[in-house]
Design a protein around this nucleic acid. Structure first.
Lengths: 355, 355
DNA sequence: TCCGTCCAGGGAACCGGTTGCCATGCTGTT
DNA sequence: AACAGCATGGCAACCGGTTCCCTGGACGGA
């Protein structure tokens, strides 16, 4: 077994050329593979390459115009299961299409987001995918529109994935999934079981994903001629801890409800534990539903009724659509459907609770 | 609100120079910030930069030696919660230390792993972090040793994170956590409750993480003078589906056990559902324990007794240690401790089951 | 007024590759 | 034997930056 001597610094194409007794161009051509090179020369070059354990500098190739393209993925926190699944879809599709994949977590900080997008522009990323809901303010639209223009003028492309669209004219690809529709169907299902007081464990009040789901909740009520009690709308993070805390508080405050709809499965998980801790059964005493259909949802007890979102597909679509986009072509705006997965956590309200 | 005219192609430093009426060197110096430039010139340059929405090409800077360093993170599947937490730690620490973060999923394919490492070497990544257990074969050691040498000779560094160490002498940083010790303590806890027939839902038989946990399971038995029934050792993937399937099979085969130890919390989750489906209560009829302490573990019902692994810390440590490493310094090998988190899923065996 | 100094900024080499263009030498044909 | 033609490989320009080195002009002091 031969081990290369650890020559402290990487070798260049010229080192290889010198060792093979040819010019750098020849080495480049041998490695490129297309240009005709005699077998003998090719052999010597390959030998030198192996001896020196040479790999061409990807950055140098990139600036010469023959590099592996890169694609960037900016999200809030890879730890969220739905983000992770999107990331997985993005990563798979990116490598399938021969792209490298950079990921950045913003931790929810807008400044980080801006910095990262600027960096990705400097990296000449083929596309930048921004993932996850956000506050849909004029400032957001303005800032993001600017990003889109910057990237577009650099030959790159901004993709908004599960994020509110911009004003028409912004050079941006938008891939959304139907938060409002999914929540509407889910809450309609809950109401159809006979529930009339449904607690909603929502997200931050400025967050589009949370807001969309909340709108669905309200719309489903309206469609039945109901007006939900505002006291039943609670707000927190999209974490199991927030769900746990909110649910505890709701029980402590003695809120009157027969069902709970959580804005995400994680929130539902925390809420479920709080219900259990309070000695309540689900769906006997209280019904519970989530949103996202993460793999774990089946393993809650009872198995969680929730809304399935094709997160991985979302990610794959985001990169495919972005990379297929040709400048000048119309901007795509895709809206993926969701569907309710009925499991065991929603049932009719207990007889004594009916009104 | 001014919108830049979409000039189809990115502008170069020379474009900026021309627009500002100075030379490229001056632009570079203005942007660099240190070299003395007159206020008037600086103003003109900045103006041109803004007008053209110019960002210096990061790849060109990199090859000139002043780029943002990069760091690569190679894992099997970002979708696994423990991987996601490691990734989070890596990403945070990397950006904290001013590094960009590339991530690649291998989908468990060794060829992909090799390809990716080669690419990262071409990218001149400051470090390559390989994450997650693997088959610890001579071929693995040989191949990984070669990777380590290649990277080292290119001035980069290989980090193995939760992965078996190589032969001494390989230029590699190893950060492990104690699979065997954690499993040992966990199983000892289960045995101390009085269980004597403990079903082990393990991972693939060639996977070091799975194997370490299995060794802990065996060692805990031996320490009590017990020899576990080989029929109680089952093997599958680290997914909730595998756990579900394995548990169903075990019940169908009428295996004799009073407790179940799953190799991961995901597996435990699937197993729990299978137990519930069979009408068994936990821990009344059967005790159940997991491994990893993912956030969700608290929300299973009953809350899962498991082993806490500091995954995020693991990730942070991996990048910090790798980047602090100076060539020639001794190779670090860190072993992080784990601890059992006692919750509600393990209890004494039912009286009629005792023997 | 003349000369030395200092400072802003330009020219050119360099980072590590790719590739268009051209020179060389060998082969094949008449 | 002479010449056309092709296979082969070197030179140099270029990709988009940085930085060393040097020049020209303004300024201050003698």
């Amino acid at each position: 077994m031969t081990r290369k001597s650890g020559d402290a610094s990487r070798s260049t194409i010229r080192d290889v050329a010198a060792r093979a007794g040819v010019s750098a161009s020849t080495v480049s051509r041998v490695l490129g593979g297309v240009y005709p090179v005699s077998a003998a020369t090719r052999g010597r070059v390959m030998r030198a390459v192996r001896d020196l354990d040479y790999v061409a500098d990807a950055r140098a190739k990139a600036i010469a115009g023959v590099g592996t393209p890169t694609l960037a993925f900016v999200l809030e926190d890879i730890t969220g299961p739905s983000f992770a699944h999107m990331a997985h879809g993005v990563e798979r599709e990116a490598t399938r299409l021969g792209h490298l994949c950079l990921v950045c977590s913003t931790e929810g900080d807008v400044r980080h987001e801006l910095e990262f997008v600027e960096m990705m522009r400097a990296q000449r990323a083929a596309a930048v995918i921004l993932v996850g809901g956000t506050a849909d303010t004029p400032e957001y639209r303005e800032r993001t529109h600017r990003m889109a223009d910057s990237l577009a003028s650099a030959g790159s492309r901004l993709v908004l994935c599960g994020r509110p669209p911009l004003d028409p004219g912004a050079p941006v690809t938008v891939i959304e999934y139907d938060n409002e529709g999914g929540a509407y169907t889910l809450v309609a299902h809950v109401l159809a079981q006979g529930h009339r007081r449904v607690l909603f464990l929502g997200g931050r009040t400025d967050h589009t994903t949370a807001l969309g789901r909340e709108r669905g909740y309200l719309a489903a009520h309206r469609a039945r001629g109901l007006t939900p009690d505002p006291a039943l709308l609670l707000h927190g993070d999209f974490t199991r801890d927030a769900g746990h805390r909110l649910m505890q508080q709701a029980l402590k405050d003695d809120l009157d409800f027969t069902a709970v709809v959580a804005a995400t499965d994680m929130v539902a998980a925390g809420a479920l534990t709080a219900l259990h801790e309070a000695g309540l059964t689900v769906p006997g005493d209280v019904s519970l539903a989530g949103y996202d259909d993460i793999p774990f949802a089946r393993d809650l007890h009872p198995a969680l009724t929730t809304v399935h979102v094709p997160y991985e597909e979302l990610g794959r679509l985001a990169v495919r659509t972005a990379l297929e986009h040709t400048p000048g072509a119309p901007d795509e705006h895709l809206l993926l459907g969701t569907h309710v997965v009925v499991r065991d956590s929603v049932g009719p309200p207990a007889p004594h609770q009916r009104r």
